[in-house]
Nucleic acid binder design. Structure first.
Length: 271
DNA sequence: CCGGAGACCTGATAGC
DNA sequence: TGCTATCAGGTCTCCG
């Protein structure tokens, strides 16, 4: 469900609301969240109960809630996860799997119908993540080096979190449209100039998504339960058959025989 | 090691 | 009105 703008929107809402707050207890539903990785309630308790929140960080699509050193909690929302900060008297919705009871009769709840997400005291996969799109270290040259290193289509490159992180299916389609690059273009065939244009396009679509507090097509809501506005600003994603936003251009199409929807304009996105 | 396919889940919606 | 099939903001793992 959530890509960088959605996760960052949640972070921006959670951090000021949680700073200094103490965790009183942890409840879990007993469901394994992520295949082969059940929630370890004891580890969560050890990591946060009695501790105060010192920071809420985002790494790629992960949220990291930091307590007094060295304690922390890592959350990934998968496809359908929600992290909600609510009054403890609010009825718990179905698929509530983890609840952190906080000072002030509030609760931080992890709700996830599909259970693709993650709530843990530790997440080794953080170490394998690539560069944040807004990291100054992601120069045009660095971007080109990354794209040159794979023979996959550029759309697949964007979804791979080992190179550039935070981009998922929606913003990958959007960035490629802004950059006028066909999704099936082999990443390795992008010139340095086009790789730089793509980096700038990624930053532009993510910045717009952030300004609109995320894209809500189905499940996404912020920590306070608010939906985003970015869905009304999408250029190509989920818009097959509608006109390309570039005046007098083509019609948005969906690539056939692809597991995940890839939307693009065949007229302005060339290989 | 790389890349592609399938797996993991539930729920909403489209089509018959 | 049901029923079934398809699809969904993500990653992992298992093959070749």
């Amino acid at each position: 469900m959530p890509e960088l703008p959605e996760v960052e929107t949640i972070r921006r809402e959670l951090e000021p609301a949680l700073l200094g707050t103490r965790v009183r207890s942890v409840w879990t539903s007993g469901f394994a969240l992520r295949l082969g990785r059940p929630v370890d309630r004891d580890a969560l308790v050890a990591a946060c109960v009695g501790h105060r929140v010192r920071a809420v960080l985002r790494r790629a699509k992960y949220l990291v809630i930091e307590f007094d050193e060295p304690h922390r909690i890592v959350v990934h929302l998968g496809m359908s996860g929600r992290l909600l900060l609510v009054d403890a008297r609010t009825p718990r919705p179905a698929h509530t799997h983890v609840v952190f009871a906080l000072d002030g009769a509030r609760e931080l709840r992890y709700v996830d119908p599909r259970r693709f997400g993650l709530v843990a005291a530790d997440a080794p996969e953080l170490a394998a993540l690539g560069l944040d799109p807004f990291d100054p270290a992601l120069t045009g040259e660095r971007m080109h080096k990354l794209t040159r290193a794979t023979r996959r289509a550029v759309k697949e490159f964007l979804l791979d979190q080992r190179g550039v992180v935070g981009v998922g299916n929606i913003y990958a389609c959007e960035a490629l449209h802004v950059a006028r690059i066909h999704p099936k273009t082999p990443a390795s065939r992008l010139s340095r100039a086009r790789a730089t244009v793509l980096r700038d396009a990624i930053r532009a679509v993510l910045t717009q998504g952030l300004a609109n507090r995320g894209t809500t097509l189905r499940d996404y809501v912020s920590a306070g339960g608010a939906i985003g506005d970015n869905q009304s600003h999408l250029r190509v994603y989920d818009r097959a058959g509608r006109p390309c936003p570039r005046p007098g251009c083509g019609q948005v199409r969906r690539l056939p025989n692809q597991a995940r929807g890839t939307f693009y304009c065949p007229r302005c996105q060339c290989r």
